[in-house]
């Protein structure tokens, strides 16, 4: 996947917090059942206002596939690697389960998978992407909150969305250079 840089653009205004992405991810990636085990999630933001003038937003998230990933920097066995297309991977065989990466990740995007005895997290469903498909969360989303693609391709939908709309990334001050872009 040379010359590609994968990213996800999210339009959270479309999110209805239905959790389809969460279940799709668990099924696709054999994430063990359990509330502490997840590769992606939807945050219910704090209720705004007071009754009866209320508002609420929902923010889906997952591994940010940072260009400067702190998880990789702290790993003592170099089990976390970044592929040329920007996807951050954990090589399960190299992981010794020390969980430094879990602590280092500012997005809390990693969990320890007891079944494979390694830290696990979102891979942008690279096995599906390399086979010509879409990440499970992107494909299944009822209201199409997420768009996945190559930001190095100026004609991709992600590039067009980022050109057309202002966007933000989470915890920009951490300098992690995340690649989940939230339209504002």
């Amino acid at each position: 996947m040379k010359n590609k840089r994968y990213a996800i653009v999210l339009d959270t205004k479309r999110c209805i917090d239905c959790k389809a992405c969460t279940v799709a991810c668990k099924a696709e990636n054999d994430v063990p059942v359990g509330r502490d085990n997840y590769r992606n999630w939807v945050d219910e933001e704090k209720l705004r206002g007071t009754y009866p003038n209320l508002g609420q937003s929902f923010t889906p998230s997952q591994c940010q596939h940072c260009a400067n990933p702190p998880c990789a920097h702290v790993c003592p066995t170099k089990a976390t690697v970044v592929s040329p297309d920007g996807i951050v991977h954990v090589i399960a065989d190299k992981c010794i389960g020390c969980k430094y990466c879990q602590t280092a990740c500012p997005y809390n995007a990693r969990y320890y998978n007891e079944v494979i005895a390694a830290v696990d997290k979102c891979t942008f469903c690279s096995h599906r992407v390399y086979a010509g498909g879409m990440p499970a969360c992107v494909e299944t989303c009822p209201t199409k909150v997420r768009v996945f693609g190559d930001i190095n391709d100026p004609n991709s939908e992600v590039s067009r969305l980022l050109a057309k709309n202002p966007s933000r990334v989470l915890k920009v001050a951490q300098g992690t250079k995340p690649h989940l872009f939230y339209l504002t």
Partner: peptide, 13 residues
């Protein structure tokens, strides 16, 4: 269906 599958649909396995 607008080509979607919700949480329940995904939980069918």
């Amino acid at each position: 269906s607008r080509a979607m599958l919700c949480a329940r649909g995904n939980a069918g396995t």
